[in-house]
Amino acid sequence: MIDRRLFLAGSALFCIGADDPVPTAAAQLDAAAKVDGRERLALLRRISRQGLSPALSLDVAAALRGAELELAIAKAGDPAARYAFQLRFQGGVDITPDALFAWCSRRVQAITTRLDRLLRGEGLTEGPVAERLRILARDPRYLYADSDAGRDRAVADMNRWLSAARAWLSRQAGTLPPAVDHVAVRRMTGPDEAAGKAGYRVVPSYDGAAPGAYFVDLHDIRRRPAWSLPSVVHHETLPGHLLQLPLQARAAPHPLRLRAASGFVEGWAFYAEALAADVGAFAQDGRAEIGYLQWMLFRLGRAMIDIGLHLRGWTADRAHTFLHDLQGDPVIFAPFDKDIAKARSDPASFAGQVANWRGFSLLRARAVAQRRDVRPLHDALLAHGAFPLALFARL
Rank of each mutant, 00 (worst) to 15 (best):
M1S: 12
F7Q: 14
S11M: 15
C15S: 14
D19R: 13
D20Q: 00
A25E: 10
L29G: 09
G37K: 10
E39S: 13
S48E: 15
R49W: 00
G51F: 11
L52Y: 03
A55E: 14
A55Q: 12
D59C: 08
A62C: 07
E70P: 04
A72M: 07
A74I: 08
K75F: 10
K75T: 13
P79Q: 13
A81G: 02
R82Q: 12
G91S: 05
G92R: 02
T96G: 14
P97I: 09
W103F: 11
R107A: 05
T113A: 15
L115N: 13
R120Y: 01
E122H: 07
G123R: 10
A130K: 14
E131V: 08
R132V: 08
P140H: 05
D148W: 05
A149I: 04
A149Y: 11
D152A: 15
A164T: 07
A164K: 05
S170E: 07
G174M: 00
R187I: 04
P191V: 06
A194M: 01
V203E: 11
G208V: 01
V216A: 13
H219E: 13
D220L: 12
R223W: 08
A226T: 12
S231K: 10
T237S: 02
L238V: 08
H241C: 07
L245E: 10
H254F: 10
H254Y: 12
A269E: 04
A274D: 13
E289S: 06
D306A: 01
H310C: 00
R312Y: 05
W314S: 00
H324F: 13
A334R: 12
F336C: 03
I340E: 09
P347Q: 11
N356C: 14
N356L: 01
W357Y: 14
S361T: 15
D373F: 15
P376N: 14
A383G: 01
A386W: 07
P388H: 08
A390I: 00
R394W: 00
L395I: 04
